[in-house]
Design a protein around this nucleic acid. Structure first.
Length: 230
DNA sequence: GCGACAG
DNA sequence: ATCTTGTCGC
């Protein structure tokens, strides 16, 4: 089950990122959002597959309405900057399987705060032409600057002289998140949505649920590499 | 050439 | 990502 959408050859992946990065549109984030999809992935117990999860939450309730899980074989080793070519296939399938098209995607990973300005959040946003936000737990690029200690405080994330996102404190005194817009969104909007989706915990609800559900799906696999097909 | 490096 | 128990703090 090959995925021409995500080339396995690093050279082709780099070229594709540079091409898709030109399609990213930085603009004001939508204000009328009713449905948000949280996305995250985990590795199968045998490490041969990726388990992608897309959780649909409503806004502003932040209630979980639905979630989809999709698996995809790993064809490429992890290479910083090429994460979307590993998790992309499974996440894309999970998002497409949702009963409703979300108004916004919130992904565990980078948006444009990426060496070629196409982190997984931006990549998925462009492929689906949906507004997206990247909320990473650690830094991929840019200068690491510590924001104020209180929830809501932030510091600009600058990479090679370019403002690509912000380092946002989502919880008092806790390690900040590296937030950057994906597609059809901007830096302030990305930070706004991450905070608006937060309940005082470090991770915003969409990503927090996706992370938890991916972990459950992983455990449910136990030592059974496979049990069915699509 | 030497580090840094989402998940 | 993943390997992993208890422990400090609100």
């Amino acid at each position: 089950m090959l995925t021409p959408e995500f080339p396995t050859d690093p050279a082709k992946a780099f070229a594709l990122q540079r091409r898709l990065a030109q399609q990213v549109r930085l603009e004001p984030c939508p204000k009328r959002v009713r449905r948000i999809a949280g996305c995250d992935a985990a590795l199968s117990p045998d490490g041969q597959e990726v388990v992608g999860v897309a959780v649909l939450l409503d806004f502003p309730d932040l209630t979980v309405l639905h979630h989809e899980v999709r698996r995809a074989r790993l064809e490429m080793p992890y290479v910083p900057g090429l994460l979307s070519f590993r998790e992309g296939p499974a996440l894309l399938a999970a998002i497409r399987a949702l009963p409703e098209t979300p108004d916004l995607l919130m992904v565990d990973g980078a948006g444009i705060a990426h060496p070629r300005r196409l982190g997984i959040a931006a990549h998925l946003g462009v492929l689906l032409d949906l507004p997206s936000v990247g909320a990473a737990k650690s830094r991929l690029c840019g200068k690491d600057v510590q924001p104020g200690p209180l929830r809501g405080e932030s510091a600009p994330l600058v990479d090679r002289g370019e403002l690509v996102g912000c380092i946002l404190r989502t919880r008092d005194g806790v390690k900040p998140l590296y937030v950057s817009p994906g597609h059809r969104c901007d830096i302030s909007g990305a930070a706004y949505w991450v905070l608006a989706c937060g309940k005082g915990l470090r991770l915003p609800e969409p990503t927090r649920w996706a992370d938890r559900l991916a972990g459950e799906a992983k455990r449910a696999m136990g030592a059974d590499p496979h049990s069915e097909d699509e």
